[in-house]
Design a protein around this nucleic acid. Structure first.
Lengths: 235, 235
DNA sequence: CCCATTTCTGAACCGCGAGTCAGTCATTCG
DNA sequence: CGAATGACTGACTCGCGGTTCAGAAATGGG
């Protein structure tokens, strides 16, 4: 009869590794320290994972699935919203929607703050370089696409650049995510979410009575791409 | 008589190291590759620097001096501005001032894009962890302080949080800095700077005729700190 | 108890790369 | 020319840490 496997070994290794990655970074984290932290041997580590990078890769894949899921459900809800609501009611619904979805995203970032911190500051020189930053690009694109729709609907001025808008939002949450890495207790970001919404809403709103402007007129002024560059490569 | 030192060795090593750090990160960059890139020997490297970290430390110190200088001159100019200008003229001067100073900062970030990229994404696990991010905190504090003054002067609503405002600005430029790392040619960020200014100005402006509101009334509503956290540590 | 089996251990292996240092090089001086 | 000197070289040393694998451990069955 075979010796039974420790049912907690795998998860213990993952937890210990996550803590060590957060403390020392992927490259400086040592198998010796990871295994010592959870009372297992170096050999046991290799029973479960090919390498520390392989372990981290599994963790990152899980985070990416969570982010992808959040993004998908947000897009779906946005589509519902733009189908159902019009005019002033639409504006109110949008504000609620954005605040709610942003809170969900921040909750997720809080739950994964140890991993995002590593991806943000310690991935260069590893296979994970750019993973987190590429994720930000998805958010930028989403915001730009939503902005384009809102301009067509006449609730955002035609001269507003979806790209800059996205950078303001994503940049803010990027800084928040960084603070999460150092926080011992979950910060209350309610006021932040609302203030960001307000400032941006005011900043991008059409002139008073702008909602009466013919949609064609707004669409006739495409927003210029604000970061002109000949290089399309992101890496 | 001693063999004359190669007058270009030191700067060649620095240039090669910077390129290698940008490509591979501090930890993965190898002395062998750095010296091979500039046609010198490993031993020559150690004639000039104690380690690759020591070399990078000198480069970072130079960047920090440049940033500190920019910050100081900006603070000085801001003090001049707030001393000289009032009312509507003040608003116009502020807009010009902010756009000019932001351009200068972005020019600096462009010039040092290889180093900031490393500090941003590859410093965890090294003595340089947090250096770049700490620099961002200085900017956040500067913006918050300026915002407080502008609120006192009545040109910014009292409910605006200088902290969120700072995050929006700094976060945006953080994303710009990241793009710099991948750009082959300097992007034109003029439109970005103006759009950011506009959006934020509209977003934080007092209600129409708000300039007529008594300053005391605005100061009586201090902005709440939006990221409430019990942890004061940044590291 | 012994046996079979799988899980687990940690000493040993081994490759990598930072750093060293004996020897070479480049220069002027006598 | 040889001597003196500091700059430079690159083969070698050495320690670190990822990885391996012979042996130990844990388990149920007969």
């Amino acid at each position: 009869m075979a010796r039974p496997a420790d049912p907690h070994a795998r998860s213990a290794l993952i937890a210990a590794a996550r803590a060590e990655f957060a403390k020392a970074g992927i490259q400086k984290a040592r198998i010796e320290d990871i295994t010592a932290a959870c009372g297992l041997s170096k050999g046991a580590f290799y029973l479960h994972f090919d390498s520390k990078e392989a372990l981290f890769g599994e963790v990152v894949a899980e985070l990416q699935r969570a982010l992808e899921q959040t993004r998908r459900s947000r897009n779906e809800a946005f589509r519902e919203l733009t189908r159902e609501s019009k005019g002033r009611q639409f504006l109110e619904r949008m504000a609620e929607f954005d605040a709610r979805e942003d809170r969900r995203l921040l909750d997720l970032l809080w739950a994964w703050r140890d991993v995002t911190a590593v991806l943000m500051r310690g991935a260069q020189g590893t296979e994970f370089d750019g993973v987190f930053w590429d994720t930000l690009d998805f958010e930028l694109e989403r915001i730009a696409a939503e902005c384009a729709q809102l301009k067509t609907a006449g609730v955002v001025r035609g001269d507003v650049s979806g790209e800059v808008l996205g950078m303001m939002v994503v940049g803010t949450y990027l800084l928040v995510a960084r603070r999460f890495a150092f926080a011992k207790a979950k910060p209350d970001f309610e006021a932040l979410v609302l203030m960001l919404q307000q400032t941006i809403s005011r900043g991008i709103a059409p002139p008073t009575r702008g909602a009466r402007v013919a949609p064609q007129r707004l669409s006739a002024r495409p927003a210029a791409r604000v970061l002109s560059t000949k290089n399309g490569s992101r890496r």
